[in-house]
Design a binder for these strands. Structure first.
Lengths: 340, 340
DNA sequence: ACGAAATCTGTGAGCGCTCTAAGATAACCA
DNA sequence: TGGTTATCTTAGAGCGCTCACAGATTTCGT
């Protein structure tokens, strides 16, 4: 069907182009009679207006981009991203936006991406998943284009850019404080990469909690790792010498690895060493191990990111927006907490 | 920057609009001098042409859609999809296409999707991930719009639609035949949902292999399951009564579940029961268990899907294309195969 | 040196829509 | 019934680009 234009519908309905346009866009100043006639013809012909023409004249495409820079190499393994996308698509559906997905598989491709992203008349705005120092340049380049942009995750240098993040500092503070409340004193941490704000912030939270309870920790209490299971295992191996009674892992995968090592070492979780993770993504293991963890509202995060970006788009003058989302401590058994 | 139009670049470079257009589109008939001057101005101003205007006049958006219908409820948990998307985005990058992602979170939203997908001037074509009977209607509706469409996965009724799939029948035939070659005789199968072609085809392959070796099987040799680990566990529980010496699970997750049950039952893999799975996605467990399995080329599959769709797009008259991709048997230990 | 062929450049139309401003019609009150 | 307002409709311009075609310039053979 449809090599149809507005003009054709107009002719068939015996009205003019603009009347049809008004009907399609739900605008007033159309008589009920005309509206009905037009709607009928539209239904009959299965007409739907040309998106490019609309975009051209209205300067709005109702499309937003999600950019996963090269630093996000875990896209293909980490269940975080599908959930993020779930939230984003849900919001797009609700607000009648379309999502364009850009996965920068390599550094070179990332270069090629920029003109495409910033070419007018294609995207109304962009969500850039980041929080890694490697993405500094792409953030900068994109800011220069005046394209509304929201960074999902806190950028390392966050002046002038809008971002949405979960409150990682408060979250890990909450996690560590919980261990303290459970009576643990020698608490160590397995951090994520300290080249990313996620890694840094979760460490800050640990420090805050320890400091405010006057608990001691030193360089041997902190091992940097990489969010993987094996990384957690290896980190725990290093941490064990300081004889901790609790470990806070900055991701569930690392917590799982840590638990594996603790057990391999013949110790008991939580009796000898309490464990708290971070994420609470639906990995079967998390449930099986009864892991106490911080629940990230990933889906809601994606949703809120879109809502925030839309605000940015609809505001004519550029504004700086920062959103921090709360997390929830999910208490299971690995922290050794006994209620009552 | 850039409220810039072609016209402005032309003025600054001292040439006309069309010359600039020619330069941008790498067309001939531009003197080297003019070309250099234009390129310089473009670089200087950071100009990039308006995508909507281009699309409007050229009737090409260089954007394709990936539609995940509601039936794909496992999008958020199955590592298959990220890998599929990887292949798709790689191809999009290579061929200078952009990917628009449509995830139908609900049946109702799926309705709302159709006009958006089929509106002219937005998508050049669509890849619909399917193979489930529930998607029959959306496939039909989309075909009607004349939008080039490729189904990724074999549709249940496949007349008139283009599709790309892996050769599931040949693959599972190969898997089962391998078990036969290993000397197994009482081979049972855990299938996927028989409402999908994946489920049906992998069962067909099993039958083919069994029949051609004149091995017996009956209703008790075949249990329908749902591709999940727990589903595999439950299915194996039912199958155990027929005292099989091998089981072919139509997915790795189910194979893992089956192995868990077999061990719970005090039996040994592969000594008592050999196991072959299907997928070979990089799930840590697959390696740990040394699972013999069929490797799906998921990334290449996504890549090839895009290439095929582009062919469809570039062919003026509609053609029917069918692509079947080969798989590879990955022999590890769970099948009890001893070489030499 | 001059015309023909080859190469380059610019003009104008038009892709299909939205939106403004002006014109037509209907509704209303005195 | 006539004039005024409120409601509806339409014509026209223009969003920023591509492409066909005509016009200008260069190249080349003789």
């Amino acid at each position: 069907m449809s090599e149809l234009r507005l003009e054709d519908i107009a002719k068939r309905a015996g009205v003019s182009r603009s009347t049809v346009s008004r009907v399609i866009n739900n605008q007033p100043n159309v008589s009920e009679k005309a509206r009905q006639r037009v709607l009928e013809v539209i239904k009959l012909t299965g007409f739907s207006p040309n998106a490019a023409a609309r975009t051209l004249v209205s300067q709005r495409s109702n499309t937003i981009g999600l950019v996963l820079p090269h630093s996000v190499s875990t896209f293909f393994t980490d269940p975080y991203y599908p959930h993020l996308i779930k939230g984003i698509t849900q919001a797009c559906n609700q607000y009648d936006f379309t999502l364009a997905l850009f996965v920068a598989g390599s550094k070179e491709y990332q270069e090629k991406l920029l003109p495409r992203l910033s070419s007018k008349g294609f995207l109304d705005g962009v969500i850039l998943q980041s929080g890694h120092q490697a993405d500094q340049s792409i953030i900068l380049e994109l800011s220069k284009t005046n394209l509304p942009m929201l960074v999902a995750g806190r950028p390392l240098y966050d002046d002038e850019v809008c971002f949405i993040d979960i409150d990682n500092i408060a979250a890990s503070e909450k996690a560590v404080r919980h261990l303290i409340n459970c009576g643990r004193k020698k608490i160590v941490i397995i951090t994520g990469p300290l080249t990313s704000t996620v890694g840094l912030d979760r460490l800050s939270g640990y420090r805050n909690a320890m400091d405010s309870s006057s608990l001691k920790y030193n360089d041997n209490s902190i091992i940097e790792s990489d969010f993987t299971e094996q990384g957690g295992y290896n980190a725990m191996q290093k941490l064990i010498s300081s004889k901790p009674d609790a470990v806070f892992a900055a991701s569930d995968m690392m917590a799982i690895g840590a638990i594996r090592f603790i057990r391999d070492a013949g110790l008991n979780v939580p009796k000898d060493i309490a464990v708290v993770g971070f994420d609470d993504l639906p990995i079967p293991m998390v449930n099986e191990l009864q892991l106490t963890t911080i629940r990230q509202p990933v889906v809601q995060f994606g949703f809120k990111a879109v809502e925030t970006l839309i605000e940015l788009i609809e505001n004519d003058l550029p504004i700086i927006k920062r959103v921090l989302m709360d997390t929830e401590l999910i208490i299971r058994k690995s922290c050794g907490f006994e209620s009552g």
